[in-house]
Design a protein around this nucleic acid. Sequence first.
DNA 1: ATGTCCTCACAATGAGGA
Length: 278
Amino acid sequence: MRIATWNVNSIRARVDRTVDWMVREDIDVLAMQEIKCKPEQFPAQPFEDAGYDLAIHGLSQWNGVAFASRLPITDVVTAFPGMPGFLKGAEGPDLPAEARALGVTINEQRLWSLYVPNGRALGDPHYAYKLEWLAALQRHAQSELAANPHLALALMGDWNVAPFDEDMGDPSFMPGESTHISAPERAAFTAFEAAGLHDVVRPLVPEGFTFWDYKRLRFPRNEGMRIDFILGSEAFADRVTDASIHRNERKGDAPSDHVPVVVDVDIDGEDDDRPMIF
DNA sequence: ATGTCCTCACAATGAGGA
């Protein structure tokens, strides 16, 4: 089966493009970020007409995450335990949760659609929030795998971190001055490795960005960033047979600023549409 | 070039977020 993640930057602005791509690329499961709407505003019909079941989590015009799946979606949760909240100008515990995480079970795999806080600027309260949010997610993933080491777990989404120097091609991001490349953000990302979650795309697709800012000709100049990732547990990673970054989705009319990241997963017993040969 | 795109607001421009 084919599993993908895509920050769509408003599903209402891009529903036709999104569903057309899913059908054309034979996508079974898509984790979406930045749907930018509430569930009742989500354009469900085009997905349902194409044979997809939906799980949607949106609280306002900001953020918002969703899943579309050809297989049944169960065990839906709209936050992970310990997920911090955020409120501009406020500090401390018990701040309102944002719509940045959606956990589902599909075909005995635990999948998350994640929209990591942007951070805005070093020293901004949103930057501390980003680090706390990543640390809480890492703790949750670690405890899930401690309880069930064989769990097929995948954390998919827009991480807003460029883990390696070659992942940052935007010259306006400066070492020591900018988010996405700071040492604490990279450490927060690397901590998932210690929890047993590995980037399942990079070994198969060593190069390539997943995001290019709309401004300043970033796409024509290829001054993008690699910030969208699929991190898989050992049980999930063992099933991955191929991966791809769909750069062409940044082209044409009204693209998202992100492109889809895809993995092919070989489930036991799945015939993968290939004829059986005896 | 404060450069683009998307959303909402007691809207026809301004603000917030990325």
